[in-house]
């Protein structure tokens, strides 16, 4: 069946079924030598998401962020709890829409930058004039 069942599955109180196919429960024959080393597969949630409660996934439409490696159709992992800083890729609310931009906070003011020369920057008097919906932490780019 090609199912790998490690000891953790049994700890989780799974059904009789998984106990039966588990290498641990098999009394006859050698247990798998890999058994002691199996500690679960790579869990992308664990590595890509720091705070699951405040993290959302959004999908990008348009190519104004190509320079940041964010293309049309890519997904972004967005943490709403993070404090936006100078240089953050943010989701900002512009004209009632969620928009992805690079946030620049300088002595001369606050700018929402596109990462594509064909799109103009948007100048904002102060950060408080902006509604920042969240801060992007990862781009799931389609290669």
């Amino acid at each position: 069946m090609g199912v790998i069942v490690g000891p953790r599955v049994i700890d989780a109180g799974a059904s009789l079924f998984s106990v039966l196919i588990s290498p641990v429960a098999v009394a006859a024959g050698f247990p798998s030598p890999a058994q002691d080393y199996f500690d679960g597969r790579i869990d992308l949630n664990a590595h890509l998401i720091k705070d699951i409660t405040s993290t959302f996934v959004v999908r990008v439409t348009g190519n104004s962020m190509e320079g940041a490696g964010i293309s049309d159709g890519d997904e972004l992992i967005v943490n709403r709890a993070l404090e936006p800083k100078d240089g953050s890729v943010v989701i900002a609310v512009l004209d009632g829409e969620l928009t992805v931009k690079r946030l620049r906070i300088t002595a001369r003011g606050v700018v929402l930058q596109a990462e594509n020369p064909r799109y103009p920057d948007i100048k904002v008097p102060a950060l408080s004039d902006l509604t920042i919906w969240g801060v992007a932490t990862r781009c799931l780019h389609h290669v």
Binding site: V58, R59, T61, G62, L98, V100
Partner: peptide, 15 residues
Amino acid sequence: RYTTHWDELPVVRAA
């Protein structure tokens, strides 16, 4: 269903 269905994610504009 923005947060439970992969094909219904919120859309953000890059424009």
